[in-house]
């Protein structure tokens, strides 16, 4: 598992953490039943507060990505395929949208953007 926390980002740390763990789960890096690192272990490794990690873990559980066994830790839940796909789709949309806004600020017209995408799709 790879986690990178950006302390200068405006996105709260717990959200960054949550998103990255979600990506790991969706991408298959973490499989059902895999244990997440303990709260204090991850906090120590990333040099962030344990409460921040706990908040991220709680949200992950709320969203159905993990289950917490009291006194034992958090485990990756049986993936809810439609939910996971939906999340993945959302992620892709986000990346597209940032690419589009970059393109626009570079002065590209909508037609030109479409063209680029067409070319990319043909190449692949």
């Amino acid at each position: 598992m790879k986690i990178i926390i950006n302390n200068t980002s405006m996105i709260p740390v717990y959200e960054q953490l949550m998103d990255q763990i979600k990506q790991e789960i969706i991408g298959g890096g973490l499989k059902e039943g895999d244990a997440l690192p303990s709260v204090r272990n991850l906090a120590g490794e990333l040099k962030i507060s344990a409460l921040t990690v706990k908040k991220a873990y709680d949200k992950l559980e709320e969203d159905g990505f993990t289950v917490t066994v009291h006194g034992k830790g958090s485990y990756v839940a049986a993936p809810d395929i439609p939910l996971a796909l939906e999340a993945r789709r959302k992620l892709v949309e986000e990346e597209f949208s940032s690419a589009v806004s970059k393109a626009r600020s570079a002065g590209l017209k909508d037609d030109e953007i479409r063209e680029i995408i067409e070319i990319l799709l043909e190449d692949a």
Partner: peptide
């Protein structure tokens, strides 16, 4: 404050 809130909010 929680550190999380201090740095996040």
């Amino acid at each position: 404050e929680d550190t999380d809130a201090l740095l996040g909010k």
